[in-house]
Write a protein that binds this DNA or RNA. Structure first.
Length: 244
DNA sequence: GTTGAGCGTT
């Protein structure tokens, strides 16, 4: 079977868009998702029964009903049939993606004067770029500074610049480094595996794979059995945009 | 009320 186009629409009443098929007559869900982000499948109205029917989906490949797509208009499925929700997730993810492809980390600031406050730190480091947070570590009893703290920047470029040089803060030379230990050791900073919370029981590995493939190559989807309302999605590399 | 290489009460 040669390449052909099938008509796909967001809704039965919407204007359809033509999606190309593969050489074997199947259609990749990724082709559909390219035009309809978040799509997890297709359905169509069966002319005989007038009922909606799902298109067979195996491993991200959509198979024509009766081996013939015909001239029907196919309608896009979204997870849980709730498009608005997926768009909200898209928007939230897009914000994170926009921050850049290299994640910043907390930097330890060594050698601070005893008198230096968090406001001092913020004022100083803001001259390099936007600051997410600063901390001065203090003795819990006395409130005295321990002479070190932490800083985190929005932009990775800022972080690189700050690590590369020494800093004169309130009259002392200070160093900024990547910390050895972390306050939250279980925070998956550069993990390729993401936690997907609040899953519903009807979600399938196929659906999750098809949704998250827009952010990178998905190498694994794990759904605990019995149902536990969460899943793990693993990407081929840590550059996939979702959590950057 | 002190100090000066280090590593973060959540």
């Amino acid at each position: 079977m040669s390449e052909l186009y099938i008509r796909v629409a967001e809704d039965e009443n919407e204007e359809p868009m033509e999606i190309p098929s593969e050489d074997d007559g199947t259609i990749l869900l990724s082709s559909v998702a390219a035009q309809f982000p978040g799509a997890c499948g297709l359905r169509y109205r069966n002319p005989e029964s007038q009922c909606m029917r799902g298109v067979r989906l195996v491993e991200g490949v959509l198979h024509a009903p009766e081996n013939d797509w015909g001239s029907l208009v196919y309608v896009v499925n979204y997870p849980k049939d709730n498009k608005r929700k997926m768009e909200e997730i898209d928007a939230a993810s897009a914000v994170k993606v926009k921050r850049g492809f290299q994640k910043t980390s907390d930097l330890i600031v060594l050698g601070l004067p005893w008198k230096t406050t968090e406001q001092d730190l913020k004022d100083y480091f803001t001259t390099f770029g936007e600051v997410i947070m600063v901390q001065v570590k203090r003795d819990v009893k006395t409130g005295n500074s321990k002479g070190f703290g932490f800083v985190r920047f929005t932009e990775y470029e800022t972080q690189t610049k700050v690590i590369a040089q020494r800093h004169m803060i309130d009259g002392r030379w200070c160093d900024c480094k990547l910390p050895n230990s972390k306050a939250f050791p279980d925070e998956p900073m550069r993990s390729r595996k993401i936690f997907v919370g609040r899953c519903t029981e009807d979600m399938t590995t196929d659906e999750l794979r098809q949704y998250f493939m827009q952010y990178g190559e998905v190498t694994d989807v794990f759904i605990p059995k019995p149902f536990r309302a969460f899943a793990f999605v693993t990407f081929a590399d840590d550059q996939s945009g979702l959590w950057q």
